[in-house]
Computed example of a mutant assay.
Amino acid sequence: MEIKIMDLVGRRSYNCDILFRVIDIQQIGGQKMVSLYGEDFRLVADAPYHDLIVINKNQRSKFREQARTLEEQSLKLFEQDVELLKERQQYEATNGYVKQNNYFQMPGKVLHLDGDPAYLKKCMDLYKKFGVPVLGIHCHEKEMPLKISSLMDYYRPDILVITGHDAYSKTKGKMSDINAYRHSKHFVQTVKEARKKVPHLDQLVIFAGACQSHFESLIHAGANFASSPSRINIHALDPVYIVAKISFTPFMERIHVWDVLRNTLTGEKGMGGIETRGMLRIGMPYNPVQEE
């Protein structure tokens, strides 16, 4: 079967372990090479045309069912966390008195830059479900360092997400060499530009990275949370779970790293970070505008 742009494929040499979208097909050095983006994992890869197989509808459903099960588990755990946070906040805001609609919440505002429009849409849908205020921008990874400053001036976020696709290639260098990664250096440059605007780690919380990204460089550049400590693939929605937890944790509370990572789909092997304050603020009284 002929393989075309946007087809969903698997790699024979990897036993079709990950579902990919075909992004580009080129003739390079006498053989056809195909550029691939992970459908559920933030991984970019190149593969020989002959190594790929088109995934049929039945196989596709199996991949999606597996992904959906993982997503639902994380979503359920996160919703439990948020509900407990809200109950505690209501108790503290009213000194234990039960009274409806007597306070309002201001969760941390998120600016999310994503190199993949399909992933961005998935993330935006989840932010909306959680009630996180967010502006999502599709931006190629190479352009992020050039655009981040003006975007921050425009939106003034509390939390910044810098993600998209990445991959480590051992043929390009050692794991410690940032030039052996597809987009890690662009993520690092973007974090550095953002920190020029807001140096303080608790005034702007940054998540940066994608699959197999150079975790140490991202943290040293100024990210609060980053991927990927073990250079594994991270799920497309993992940044949202981390960011939503930060957005809904009160600003007087510290977020312990494990409390954030435990409900993500890839855990501490795929994500890591440093202690960080939450971004939620509570106000009183809640006074909705009355409709005439």
Rank of each mutant, 00 (worst) to 15 (best):
R195H: 06
G222F: 00
L111S: 01
M252E: 12
M284C: 07
R42G: 02
Q26R: 13
V9A: 04
I206D: 04
N56G: 14
K147W: 05
K128R: 14
K245E: 06
Q290E: 06
R60Q: 14
D114N: 05
T266Q: 14
R182C: 14
R195G: 08
V34P: 04
P250R: 12
K122R: 09
S228K: 05
G108A: 09
E253H: 12
R60P: 02
L19M: 02
L151M: 08
K142Y: 05
H140P: 11
S230Q: 13
K99I: 11
Q212Y: 07
L8Q: 10
G115V: 07
G270F: 03
F187M: 01
L85Q: 12
D166S: 09
I137P: 01
R182L: 12
R182S: 13
N95G: 12
I25D: 05
L151C: 04
Q100S: 12
E216R: 15
K174Q: 09
L135A: 06
K172T: 01
V54L: 11
C211Q: 07
N95S: 11
W258I: 13
K147R: 12
F215T: 12
L135D: 06
M252D: 11
S74W: 05
T190F: 00
Y37H: 13
S228E: 05
E143V: 04
L8G: 03
G278H: 05
S61I: 14
I159S: 07
E87H: 08
I55A: 05
K197N: 06
Y168G: 08
Q73N: 15
D177W: 01
Y91P: 01
Q59S: 10
S74F: 05
Y119T: 09
L52P: 03
L126P: 06
I162L: 00
F78K: 15
S74E: 05
V22A: 04
R11M: 07
I246L: 10
D116H: 03
A210D: 03
V132T: 13
V54E: 06
D51H: 00
T249N: 11
H112E: 01
R156L: 05
E83W: 04
E72R: 15
R156M: 03
K129V: 02
G209D: 04
G273K: 10
V198E: 14
I178K: 01
V134L: 00
N56T: 07
F251V: 13
A93T: 10
P229T: 04
Y181S: 02
Q66D: 12
R68S: 09
L160G: 00
A210R: 08
R11P: 01
G108Y: 10
D17H: 03
G209A: 04
